[in-house]
Amino acid sequence: MTPQLRIPSTARGKQITITVNGIPVTAHEGETVHAALTAAGIYLLRQTLSGEARGAFCGMGLCYECLVTVNHIPDQRACMTVVQDGMKIRTHG
């Protein structure tokens, strides 16, 4: 069971649903994909060509460690992409 990482606070965008590897995941408007994945307990985002596990590192669009496929477009930075309702995310872990 993933711990509750969303801080129970009042201020949050409208709740929406995205899918991650086909599984529905709750997200909120205004969040980045990185935030939504973290809240869902998904840290492993991809593997290097040599098979090492990688996840978001800098969180601000510099390191390109957080690459995921967004709506069929490969290699998008999760930390620089804002979620949209129905967005399809694919990780490559």
């Binding site: 990482l5 969303r6 601000m60």
Partner: peptide, 13 residues
């Protein structure tokens, strides 16, 4: 910074 962004901008630990 990444942790800070999660907490402050997205209120996600």
């Amino acid at each position: 910074g990444a942790a800070q962004i999660l907490v402050k901008s997205h209120q996600v630990l």
